[in-house]
Design a protein around this nucleic acid. Sequence first.
DNA 1: TCTATATCGATAAATATATATCGATAAGTT
DNA 2: AACTTATCGATATATATTTATCGATATAGA
Lengths: 230, 230
Amino acid sequence: MMASVTGTGESVSAASLRRLPSYRQYLKVLQGMGREVVSCSHIGQALKLNPTQVRKDLAVTGIVGRPKVGYETEALIEAIESFLGWNNLNQAFLVGVGSMGTALLGYDQFNHYGLKIVAAFDNNPSLIGQKIHGHEVLSLDKLTDLAARMHVLVGILTVPAQAAQSVANLMIFGGIRAIWNFAPAPIEVPEGMVVQTEDLFSGFAVLSSRLAEVMGIRRKAGVNADANRR
Amino acid sequence: MMASVTGTGESVSAASLRRLPSYRQYLKVLQGMGREVVSCSHIGQALKLNPTQVRKDLAVTGIVGRPKVGYETEALIEAIESFLGWNNLNQAFLVGVGSMGTALLGYDQFNHYGLKIVAAFDNNPSLIGQKIHGHEVLSLDKLTDLAARMHVLVGILTVPAQAAQSVANLMIFGGIRAIWNFAPAPIEVPEGMVVQTEDLFSGFAVLSSRLAEVMGIRRKAGVNADANRR
DNA sequence: TCTATATCGATAAATATATATCGATAAGTT
DNA sequence: AACTTATCGATATATATTTATCGATATAGA
Ligand SMILES: NC(=O)c1ccc[n+]([C@@H]2O[C@H](COP(=O)([O-])OP(=O)(O)OC[C@H]3O[C@@H](n4cnc5c(N)ncnc54)[C@H](O)[C@@H]3O)[C@@H](O)[C@H]2O)c1
Ligand SMILES: NC(=O)c1ccc[n+]([C@@H]2O[C@H](COP(=O)([O-])OP(=O)(O)OC[C@H]3O[C@@H](n4cnc5c(N)ncnc54)[C@H](O)[C@@H]3O)[C@@H](O)[C@H]2O)c1
């Protein structure tokens, strides 16, 4: 479906990438408990994942383990962070200081994810100039210049869906290279840029469907697939 | 494969389920533009998905289309909503009225997703009794009784990771059947319950990795994630 | 009316992802 | 020192998901 970005090298599946943060989270818990080494079987048991899968996922970071023992907890955490680039901070702009934007501005752990929100923007005059969780809200029309001047690479998009593309365009003009998009709308960007769209309700759809299943609610005329054929 | 006779239908792939909300979102845009029919090819082009995949995803809702034409927009929206159970409201409790919890309490579109947050809980005395976005914050120790009394089925978990399991246990005792978990921690629940854990940073890991790629930061391997997908 | 064609619905093929297997090896045990 | 065992790393197999193909059919145009 999608070619490797490097062209020559093998590619890491998005599925593996998405699990890395949960490994790191759990490893930090173990580290806090003073555990110095950990095996894939142990991690797999804790996170309900197949040990082979864990091993394969961790292998992408280049970590090397010891048979009969596992991996050094600290080295593994560092390998994951280094692989994801979370060991040094990227500056980020956030646009849309509403419910979602405010929540993200209030999240005090971004530095653990290699991210530092350095400015917030909105187009609502009554918000501009206010301080939200320590970040002054700036006017949207300052975004492009400021992004270019500060060499900001990451933009966080928390505006309504219908405004998403127009704000994204400002980010693109400002030289931002990666957009973390919380609006449930696809964003068009030029080659060489990254968009990650988070649709919160995609997860909720899974929950809804599974809930309907366990509650025994029939959702479709003829649950039996064969009976449904004409 | 085959649906079981017991009523638990064959389960639809999580991948398909996760795309349904984006179809619905786009269909609503089309509907707002007065478009009465739409084909899989059209949807696929707009959302950058393969038309065959779109067709297969939509088929799970039981919708029937017309060759050469496509599906009726309105019927399709209804089919998706009905399939997900989003056409009638489920009551939900939210626990943890911090940054994230407040954002969710402030989201005014939950009714479009079949969800109505009917009470919010926290264990912080200075929050209890306050009104947040129209929801009074109740003491955590009222949760279990109230959930049972009101037959609440859905719990939204927005507490720190280390508190997640203990709060989940209260939900379980109260008869809640599905937990939408925003804490980056795995939750243990009995058979017959549903947990959907949203790790916001799993998506950010994909972004980080792809950003490192396009910025030419050498790593062990390439990445094959598609920007607007999960 | 007849023909061309876009699209559906079903199925087959291709690709991606997850899991099982197996030899190698480090560390503890006899 | 030899034996046992847990685990790694690599590879093979199994499963899931995505994409291509094909006949059927509704609609538009000749
Ligand atoms: N709040 C949630 O819990 C939640 C949940 C799921 C998805 N989302 C999505 O996140 C996005 C934001 O949601 P929200 O609830 O925070 O909405 P909101 O209405 O509370 O906030 C949106 C903010 O964006 C600003 N804005 C609007 N147009 C703008 C523009 N062109 N330029 C700059 N700023 C602009 C508004 O002034 C407002 O401050 C939406 O796309 C929504 O669908 C939110
Ligand atoms: N805020 C974000 O943007 C964000 C982003 C990603 C993930 N998260 C996750 O969401 C969760 C909440 O994050 P947050 O930023 O809102 O944190 P927060 O500290 O702002 O809020 C947590 C709330 O939970 C309450 N709480 C703590 N222990 C509790 C308990 N045992 N019972 C009931 N209430 C309790 C606290 O009083 C507080 O009000 C965390 O797990 C966090 O990792 C948040």
